[in-house]
Simulated scan of single mutants.
Amino acid sequence: MVDRLERYSLHGSGWSARTAARLLCRGLRAANPYPSIGPVLRVLNGARDPTVADIAREAVQQAWDDGGHAWNRIWRDLWREVQVHTGEGWPGYYRDLPYPMTRFLLTPEPDCAHVPRVRLVACLDRENRHDGSSAAAVLDAAQRSSDLRVRRELMTLLAATDQPDLLGMLEYLFIEGLRNTGNPNRQIAERHALWTGGKPTPLLETVLTNPYTPRRAKNSLCGELGVLAVLCGRSDLLGDYDRDYLGVALLDTVNRRGVPAVLKEKCQQTLREYRLDRRDEPIRPRPPQGQPRRPNGAVGSWPTSYTGTDTAGGGYDGGGGHSGGFGGSF
């Protein structure tokens, strides 16, 4: 029955389509909604008749305003509905957020604790941490949605937000982008690219525009975030990082193919200014308490590359609840 109502609502028009849509949406106004709100969301995003889409939008709006757990069901079902399965690589899908649902999520929410005060940010604040954060899905949609308006509006939100999970994801993507710059695997390099033709990608532009990045370091061993501080001219944050790990990350950036000359010059200047380029002292990374110290190379030698994956305690905690790596999906 639900499948038939959804089909009539999506592909029909006029009185019959509107009636089918009202019957389909009736469950959202009942005490016990449908186990899945997916059919109503699909009508909202893809109805042939604009009037039918308005009926679905009003029903979702009413369910949202009624409070309770309806917002969580809408939020969770939304991200399942927008998954586009590719069957390639991991995780084998990406998020293609439709524009009508984007506009719904960007509706003002006065009680939101972070800026911008819209529904999308409010949902991230309310999420149950045991279920994981949807910040990765938001970043995925901002980069890979087929509708240019969706990508533009989500990037605008990311460039102004102070929501901790979103800031943590922006920092994580910068780290991944920096580590994969110059990667011989072209597909991986393009997927994580921070620069194209020497110019920042939209993702890097967003990171640089956001006034809340970079933040104070929560992991002093993550030298790549020190590189971000150098790129943003935030020398006041460099003291948060372990001297050795920061020096390795700066040297790695200087020697990495594909990094613009401007950033390489800033890194070299920082190495000289903070005496991180001295070769008469061995690097002694500080392992976490209880872990054996890894043997160093010859005195006066610097590693030629550093990825952070083979160092004890090199995991990244971006402040979004992801410790020792990233638990989201891309």
Rank of each mutant, 00 (worst) to 15 (best):
Q61F: 04
A136K: 00
L5F: 07
G319K: 07
Q269P: 01
R80G: 00
G177N: 05
L231F: 10
G89D: 03
L154G: 07
G223A: 04
D280I: 14
G27F: 02
S134I: 00
L194Q: 12
T51Y: 12
D131M: 01
M101G: 00
R191I: 02
L166H: 07
R149G: 02
G233Y: 11
P282D: 03
L148R: 14
C112Y: 07
G198D: 11
I283M: 02
G308P: 14
V259F: 13
D242P: 05
L228T: 10
E273N: 13
G290C: 10
Q143W: 01
G89Y: 11
A31F: 02
G87T: 05
G177I: 04
R29C: 00
G132Y: 00
S235A: 13
Y8S: 11
N32H: 15
L246E: 08
V248P: 00
L251Q: 10
V262T: 13
C123Y: 00
P285L: 14
L251P: 03
R234M: 07
S145V: 03
P116R: 08
L194I: 13
Y274W: 15
P295A: 13
V299Q: 09
G318S: 03
Q291L: 13
R151L: 07
C112I: 06
A21K: 08
A17K: 03
T107N: 08
T156H: 15
R278V: 06
A59V: 10
A20N: 11
D49M: 10
L105I: 09
T311P: 01
H69E: 06
D252C: 05
L28H: 01
T201K: 06
P288K: 15
G223P: 12
R95P: 00
V138L: 03
S133L: 01
A21M: 11
A21T: 08
W15Q: 15
A21S: 12
R149L: 09
G239A: 15
S133R: 01
R80S: 00
R257S: 12
G132T: 02
L44H: 12
P184H: 11
L23F: 15
E153A: 09
V118N: 11
H130M: 05
R29L: 04
P164F: 05
P303G: 10
Y306H: 14
G14E: 07
S13M: 12
S16R: 13
P214T: 08
K199R: 14
W90F: 10
R294E: 13
V43C: 05
Y212L: 01
L204V: 04
F104R: 02
N32F: 12
A189G: 07
L208N: 08
I283S: 01
E58Y: 05
R73Y: 04
R48C: 04
G87Q: 08
A21N: 11
P110N: 03
D310V: 03
T86S: 14
L204T: 06
A189W: 10
L203C: 05
